[in-house]
Design a protein around this nucleic acid. Structure first.
Lengths: 191, 191
DNA sequence: AGCGCTATCTACCAAACGGTAGATAACCTA
DNA sequence: TAGGTTATCTACCGTTTGGTAGATAGCGCT
């Protein structure tokens, strides 16, 4: 166990945040199954045992990572949604969403990798993702209800395209995410 | 190691096929990282050592699974591509592709789960997927070149939508994959 | 300065992992 | 029916894994 010398002691909240940030990066790169407790710990310059003082198990760490991303990400959207939105504002909100994702590649990859991994019903985050994505679609559908002729199908369309574009962008960084999105949105929000 | 009694002996090719089929199902359900050698073996009623007689390592098994899917899947498309196709035949080929995927959920899930897992450069199938998907896009682009104003962007669009739709369909089987595809294709092939 | 709290470490464990070596038994052929 | 081939098994090894127990050291408070 490496950090024999130079013990770094941090206040609880600070260390927790550091761990979660590092864990997010690692999971994004290699999936949850692909990262060991020791790897999580080493990324913060500490040992397994040290990490387990903050999170009682590896699985509890995963859940904390997901909850953190939720609070970070969802909060910034919800407030813009309060007045029943028309097509133009709906598009603006979605574009903002896309732009923010573009700047946070590792978070996008975290969600992509993890949500694919969690297709397995035995995965610790399976239920989380099932609920999360269902809510997401319902919320989007409410957006579209006011003006789109087929809000149900349209919601699936839009989310499918975004998910797929994200996936392909992660595979090939040469793809111009923003341009592809805007072109799609031109068609989508013209209906 | 369970199967102490009732040893089942099969000819080489037959057993190989049985193993690959079972491994495909397992990887589709839990990803490659999520399945152990013993689990692969147990699914065919044999032991680790028995399986390793056919595939020298766990990683070699993964590669064999991917190659098998390629030969099974690609062969049926390539022959329809020979005469430079117009929009209508291109759409027909893609629709056939979608229909076949619909009937083979586990293969779709195999590719989805595995290609997300393989975003990690350290994954044994990383190079495979990178090459495979690049080729796929190039091939599609050749299809579109004859009639579409922006074949490059259109190819990304189409593949992103299909990937994303697959992903969402795997998450929620209630989605009508075929209907969503046809609606998208109506718009796409009208351009 | 000294005391207490607790964040962190060292050392360890049992289970699970991928893989190897050598024994055993099922099938084919003569 | 005997013998050889080889698909499969039993038994084992070294490593890695998630997690625990108890020692140690950094910080805040008086």
């Amino acid at each position: 166990m490496t950090p024999s010398q130079g013990r770094r002691r941090l206040p609880l909240a600070e260390r927790r945040e550091e761990i979660l940030k590092a864990a997010t990066e690692l999971i994004a790169a290699s999936g949850f199954k692909g990262v060991t407790l020791e790897a999580f710990a080493a990324a913060c310059g500490m040992t397994k045992a040290g990490l387990l003082h903050h999170f009682r198990s590896r699985e509890e760490l995963l859940i904390a990572v997901l909850e953190r991303r939720d609070t970070l990400d969802l909060a910034s959207v919800v407030d813009a949604l309060e007045p029943a939105p028309d097509a133009a504002t709906a598009r603006a909100v979605m574009s903002g969403f896309v732009r923010r994702n573009l700047a946070q590649r590792s978070l996008v990859q975290l969600y992509t990798v993890l949500s694919a991994e969690a297709l397995d019903p035995a995965h610790p985050a399976h239920a989380y993702f099932q609920a999360r994505l269902r809510e997401g679609r319902a919320m989007l559908q409410r957006y579209l209800l006011a003006w789109h002729p087929r809000p149900g199908e349209a919601a699936v369309d839009l989310l499918a395209f975004l998910d797929g574009l994200q996936l392909n962008w992660l595979r090939d960084a040469g793809i111009d995410f923003l341009a592809q999105w805007e072109a799609f949105a031109d068609r989508f929000f013209a209906a």
